[in-house]
Amino acid sequence: MPQAQTSSSLGQIKLPSKLKYIVLDILKPHRPNILKFAEELAYLHKTYSVNLKVIAVDEKTESVEIMIEGEELDYEKIEATISKLGGSVHSIDEVSVGPKIIYSKKLR
């Protein structure tokens, strides 16, 4: 019997459970640097693997692509951690839900 998944609702981001992979586009101040972001995000759960890539640097800010993979990602905690570090999520660019992670063509 497949486990029922949480449905999304308008007005709030409520991603399905068993989220295994997510790609976020965030804007952050230069400090703390991406090492600190990676450390704090990876610290959220022992199964989290984190990859951060700076894609644009401005005078006061930088845009960073964050890829997180784990057994069951907690989006709310991830977003709260990003906010705590001074970043803001611009967009959720990619997600993967289900028993197997399906990466986009770009990453394969």
Binding site: L27, K28, P29, P32, D58, E59, K60, T61, S83, K84, L85, G86, S88
Partner: peptide, 11 residues
């Protein structure tokens, strides 16, 4: 620069 208030952030 961030176009947002960084309330409750480390900053």
């Amino acid at each position: 620069a961030m176009l947002t208030k960084l309330t409750k952030s480390l900053q």
